[in-house]
């Protein structure tokens, strides 16, 4: 039965995806700090950095939205782990009843209805797992779109940094930091999307 092997690979895939998501969560918590730092620097620079301050404020909002989106991914991973574990449990039960089915006909007849029920349940859980993966891919696409807006903001921050007068160098450094962080999130998520598409 394909379900058996699918269960094992499903758990491995969930664990792998979860590791990538955890990595993004770690990085994204940095965006908030960098954006906050950018806002403070912009405030110190006064009127000359007004544009940079606006972008920094938007970046903080982006960071909050990213957090919420990543939490959504985390919840989907939780569902996947739960369903993959349920499948593993069904798989074990299936295996035990399959062993009973190796006995003679008079014994098999008692196990057949139970085996059919276990297989029906495996079918239901398999469908749930498939829907979980679908929802995960959709959510991932939403996060990637969000990251696109984050990248635009980081580019805007770089442009606004040029108008920062004597604070321009510091603002450029902060803008580069933001760009680097957002790029790292983006490339990790893109890689994850590629893996999930396999």
């Amino acid at each position: 039965m394909n379900i058996v092997n699918d269960t094992i690979s499903s758990l491995h895939r969930v664990v792998k995806a979860n590791e990538d998501i955890k990595k993004v969560i770690r990085i994204s918590s940095g965006v908030n700090l960098v954006a906050l730092n950018a806002m403070l620097i912009a405030k110190r620079s006064g009127e000359r950095s007004r544009g940079f301050a606006v972008v920094s404020s938007e970046l903080r909002l982006f960071s909050r939205n990213l957090d919420a989106a990543m939490n959504g991914l985390g919840e989907l991973i939780f569902s996947l782990v739960r369903d993959a574990a349920a499948m593993q449990r069904q798989r074990q039960q299936h295996s035990h009843f399959m062993t009973v089915m190796k006995a003679n006909k008079s014994v098999r007849k008692w196990a057949e209805p139970t085996l059919a029920r276990v297989e029906a349940r495996m079918g239901v859980v398999e469908e749930e797992i498939s829907q979980d993966w679908h929802r995960l891919r959709l959510q991932l696409n939403r996060v990637l779109q969000l990251c696109e807006s984050g990248r635009s903001l980081s580019r805007s921050a770089k442009i606004e940094a040029v108008y920062g007068g004597d604070m321009s160098t510091t603002l450029k450094q902060v803008a580069s930091q933001i760009e680097g962080t957002v790029d790292e999130i983006f490339s990790t998520l893109k890689l994850l999307r590629m893996q999930l598409a396999d």
Partner: peptide, 11 residues
């Protein structure tokens, strides 16, 4: 040992 016990009883 479930399968062994179940089979022995069901027989």
């Amino acid at each position: 040992i479930f399968s062994a016990v179940f089979s022995a009883i069901s027989a």
